[in-house]
Amino acid sequence: MIGHFSYIVTVFLMVAGLYILIACSNLIKKLVGLSIFQTSVYLLYIVPGKLVGGTAPIISPQYTVYSNPLPHVLILTAIVVGVATLALGLALAVRIREAYGSIEEDEILARDHAVIATEAANEEPL
């Protein structure tokens, strides 16, 4: 159980991110939740690569034990892709705000339903 403590931390962060993602209706807060979810995945990859007594994977004659470099490489690219997708999501949020005047999911849905209802009402007399 002690050996799996790090996974518990990861799962806690993941659940918190997931909860923000589902429960908050604000689009920007949803994106923050998504980035927390992402960081929990970083931990999930990096933690098993650590070896106690090892050093960072930079080869030097003084050290013999190094942590595993492979997850570092994978996560390095994931972080940069993560910020690029975050920016794309924010751009979408800004466009939604311009189109609907709001970034709250409930208000957007309500407006959509209202538009559909009026369209249906306009079509019926014909």
Partner: peptide, 12 residues
């Protein structure tokens, strides 16, 4: 090549 760093970090 010799320490932490690389293209991603430098670009940012």
């Amino acid at each position: 090549d010799f320490g932490p760093g690389g293209g991603f970090q430098a670009g940012v």
